[in-house]
């Protein structure tokens, strides 16, 4: 070592011991190589797939809105109805659950129940719930509506609860010191602090619900997804292209609209 210049090296962050570090990284690399090697690729299938993909792109380039317009407009209206109703119902149910799942407002038993509901809703992916509801209530938008409402609760209640737990507690303390009741406390100290974010999250969820409505249609829960599925099954790629374009436009409009409203409520 040089006596005058001191050297410095950044200490390792995760694994302190050098031997373990090298061992673990080498093991991970070996696994990755072995796993990649185990994937079988049928190059002929890939070639055929590319061909089919090209026909798809051709359909996209010459989208056909007219010949299946009845099916498309029907599916669209169904999807939008599903989105609006499930978002509204989901938000209405999420608010009390979100309040109950905020540890700084709810007593422990209420907290536990609300957190369990959220955990259940988040554990199940939309498609799985949709399959379940389609099996229970049959094909069509009602199953889709239930699915999206259920998924909205898990999403919105969790984020709302976390937002409530993050609020400025001095404002709550000040309102409590006036002798306010619990409901007044929620109305005066909590609501003003979380309202802009609640509105923003609801609009964001509206976006998500519209996109999801296209996905769950594929498993039979109605909406534009069902129309898209039918078009692809019939190899009508020009109609499918038209549907995809419409979905993209609507999602973009919803996205732009919701971000504008979010800026406005802040």
């Amino acid at each position: 070592m040089n006596a005058t210049g001191r050297t410095w090296r950044r200490p390792p962050i995760l694994i302190k011991d050098r031997r373990w570090r090298i061992g673990i990284y080498a093991g991970l690399l070996a696994y990755l190589v072995a796993a990649a090697a185990s994937i079988e690729i049928d190059w002929l299938r890939v070639y055929q797939g590319l061909e089919r993909g090209w026909r798809f792109i051709e359909g996209f380039l010459r989208p056909d809105f007219t010949s299946r317009w009845n099916d498309i407009s029907h599916g669209l209206i169904e999807s939008l109805t599903m989105t609006v109703t499930s978002t509204v119902v989901g938000v209405i149910i999420s608010v009390p659950i979100g309040i109950g799942a905020a540890r700084n407002l709810a007593p422990l038993p209420v907290y536990a129940v609300c957190r369990s509901i959220i955990a259940l809703s988040r554990a199940l992916q939309e498609i799985i719930i949709a399959i379940l509801f389609v099996a229970m209530f049959g094909f069509g938008p009602f199953a889709g509506f239930l699915t999206l409402s259920f998924a909205t609760i898990g999403f919105l209640a969790k984020l709302l609860a976390e937002d409530i737990e993050d609020i400025d507690s001095s404002q709550v303390e000040a309102v409590r010191a006036t002798g306010a009741s619990w409901w007044q406390l929620v109305n005066y100290a909590v609501q003003p602090q979380v309202m802009p974010r609640l509105i923003g999250l609801s609009l964001y969820r509206f976006d998500i619900n519209f996109r999801e409505s296209a996905v769950i249609g594929i498993v039979g829960a109605g909406g534009i997804g069902a129309t898209l599925n039918t078009a692809i099954d019939r190899y009508e790629f020009d109609s499918a292209g038209a549907i995809l374009l419409i979905i993209i436009v609507i999602v973009m409009v919803a996205e732009y609209g919701s971000s504008t409203v979010r800026k406005w409520v802040q």
Partner: peptide, 21 residues
Amino acid sequence: LRRARRRIGMIFQEYALVERL
């Protein structure tokens, strides 16, 4: 206690107003 609290006014550090009201 709520009844008693309304007889006791409190003024806070950093004001503790509800900012958006």
